[in-house]
């Protein structure tokens, strides 16, 4: 109740001074992401957990868009939400038989996890507020967030992945205009990740394939040899 009152009063205060839409949407997405993440923990039904997780990750993609990382945000939507979680739900549905949909956790574990999690959260929050430079927004933020300055986020990333950095390239010796540093591209990690994905594809297909076919084949072999005998 008090929280609601506080929310309404701060909303009114902001309205009189003009809402900062960037902050507003940040708040919206942040509350969605955190609230739904908590819901994932609290939910017992595994399908509902997956649903909350989807919404939470979608809201996080919104946060990425707000931070100017549009490519990463779209990637998050495409791979995480569109790919990984559909896969996850697929798995949930394959294994979702009545006794496993909701496996209860003992209350003792919950309390213990709550204490550990609370401690971890306290440490992380303390760290988040210690860096003085982190809590200040840059001076020219207002014009950056109004959508006037759209910085291309996809192409520099793509260039970095094939080994050319636009913000200071180590190969050509070109220095970054901002801080005079050189940076290396990501060609090797990119290749490693590509091969890794291929290996994972093959490995997952191998792991998940049913052994039934082999058994049937063996049985058929035995029956045919039996027939020959």
């Amino acid at each position: 109740m008090i929280g609601t009152l506080f929310g309404v009063s701060s909303l009114l205060a902001a309205t009189s001074g003009g809402i900062n839409w960037h902050s507003f949407f940040f708040l919206l997405f942040a509350l969605l992401a955190c609230g739904l993440a908590v819901a994932v923990v609290l939910a017992d039904n595994v399908v509902r957990m997956a649903f909350y997780l989807v919404l939470s990750l979608g809201a996080t993609a919104g946060l990425f868009f707000l931070a100017g990382a549009e490519f990463v945000g779209a990637m998050q939507l495409m791979i995480y939400v569109g790919g990984t979680l559909v896969l996850l739900i697929f798995g949930v549905m394959l294994t979702a038989q009545e006794p496993f949909v909701a496996i209860k956790t003992p209350a003792r574990d919950k309390v213990l996890a709550g204490i550990v999690g609370g401690g971890l959260l306290a440490v992380l929050l303390q760290a988040a507020f210690t860096g003085p430079a982190w809590s200040e927004a840059p001076a020219d933020m207002a014009e950056r967030t109004l959508g006037q300055v759209t910085q291309p986020s996809a192409t520099p990333l793509g260039m970095a992945l094939v080994g050319v950095r636009v913000d200071g390239d180590v190969a050509s010796g070109e220095r970054s205009p901002a801080d005079g540093n050189v940076r290396s591209g990501y060609l090797l990690p990119f290749e490693i990740v590509s091969v890794h994905l291929l290996v994972v594809l093959v490995g997952a297909a191998y792991l998940a394939r049913t052994k039934r076919r082999k058994a049937v084949a063996i049985a058929r072999d035995e029956s045919t040899t039996g027939g020959v005998r």
Partner: peptide, 14 residues
């Protein structure tokens, strides 16, 4: 929270 600009700390909290 509604009218102040968002900084890195906000994201770190999330």
């Amino acid at each position: 929270l509604l009218s102040d600009p968002v900084g890195v700390s906000h994201y770190l909290v999330v």
